[in-house]
């Protein structure tokens, strides 16, 4: 079935909420407005305002409330209008959601999904364009997921909802309208499982969320120039499926990591370190990272374009790592 990413998320939540009355949705404009990006279209009509809870603009407050509800046995899905607003709730996410299980010696748990779009869209300015996944990945006690395709979005969101831990589920505004084949009915994709999105022999490219689309386009272009690129989508950023990347690197001997987030202390730095530790001898040369620039994302179109990885930059990186001019 051909579905948009937005529809796939909608289906995942709808099916899960039908299955389990402990699941409720909470966030700004999730109900009568139908979601700021229409991901929750039809929810309040089907499930009622008790389970589709519109909130005031108080991310710390309602995220904390959801964490408390999870501690008491409910399974909340928190929609952040954008992941940027998660910064306002960061105390709740880092100090409570991520730690309560551990601090209580395993007595309490926080089965919770916090989802919403991350990364830049069309010229939204510095405060609405951030890729913060590395922040969340840094914190023990959280799982972090960032699907790129409608099929992955549905299967991973279902797994996230069924998980017993707090899961940060990062979507992308520019992905909501993208379409893809989605398996019909109930299915899940396990968290922590990467997927080889394109097989190739010469070089491995790791990319996630909307950078996967950039990487696949670059791979297509490179294939016309005789470079055979393998593209891997980790899909879950934490826990990271290192084995799949290692297997690929052992085959290709070369690795490029693409991420939209800032370069310094970015997720790619961690992936590179992990690969150097696990597969140094298999590498024919240094790992190359293609990242966002270390600037607040600017508004003006040419400046915004300059700040974010694109196909030419990925192509150039692959050529460099392969020693092709």
């Amino acid at each position: 079935m051909l579905l948009s990413y937005r529809e796939a998320l909608n289906q995942a939540m709808r099916e899960e909420m039908r299955r389990d009355p402990r699941i409720f949705l909470i966030g700004e404009e999730v109900g009568y407005y139908q979601g700021a990006f229409k991901v929750t279209k039809g929810f309040v009509e089907e499930f009622g305002p008790q389970r589709v809870v519109d909130t005031p603009i108080t991310e710390a407050g309602f995220t904390g409330l959801a964490i408390g509800a999870a501690m008491a046995g409910l399974h909340p899905i928190v929609e952040l209008m954008t992941m940027n607003f998660g910064i306002v709730a960061l105390d709740q996410i880092v100090n409570n959601a991520a730690k309560i299980r551990y601090m209580s010696g395993g007595q309490l748990s926080v089965p919770l999904v916090i989802r919403g779009p991350g990364s830049a869209a069309h010229q939204l300015g510095a405060q609405h364009s951030q890729s913060l996944e590395a922040w969340f990945c840094h914190v023990p006690g959280l799982k972090v997921v960032a699907p790129a395709t409608p099929h992955d979005a549905k299967g991973l969101l279902k797994s996230a909802i069924r998980d017993k831990n707090p899961v940060i589920f990062i979507e992308a505004q520019l992905l909501y309208g993208t379409k893809g084949e989605v398996t019909e009915g109930d299915y899940t994709i396990p968290l922590g499982q990467a997927e080889v999105k394109r097989t190739g022999a010469d070089v491995t490219v790791v990319a996630y969320s909307k950078m996967l689309l950039v990487a696949l386009e670059a791979a297509e272009q490179l294939s016309r120039e005789g470079v055979d690129v393998e593209v891997i989508d980790p899909r879950t950023l934490k826990p990271l499926d290192l084995d799949t990347i290692v297997t690929s690197v052992k085959k290709t001997g070369r690795l490029v990591i693409v991420e939209e987030g800032w370069r310094f202390c970015g997720l790619g730095a961690q992936i590179a370190e992990s690969i150097y530790s696990a597969a140094f001898d298999s590498l024919d040369g240094p790992i190359i990272r293609v990242t966002g620039e270390d600037v607040p994302i600017p508004y003006s179109r040419p400046l915004e374009d300059a700040a974010i990885p694109d196909v030419p930059r990925v192509v150039a990186a692959v050529k460099t790592v392969c020693g092709v001019a």
Partner: peptide, 25 residues
Amino acid sequence: FMGGYAIVGGHIPLATGLAFTTKYQ
């Protein structure tokens, strides 16, 4: 006893979540 929390003010939203749950159920 759902815990002691050491970021001042940070556990008060949690309390609303416990109360939300009992009302929900």
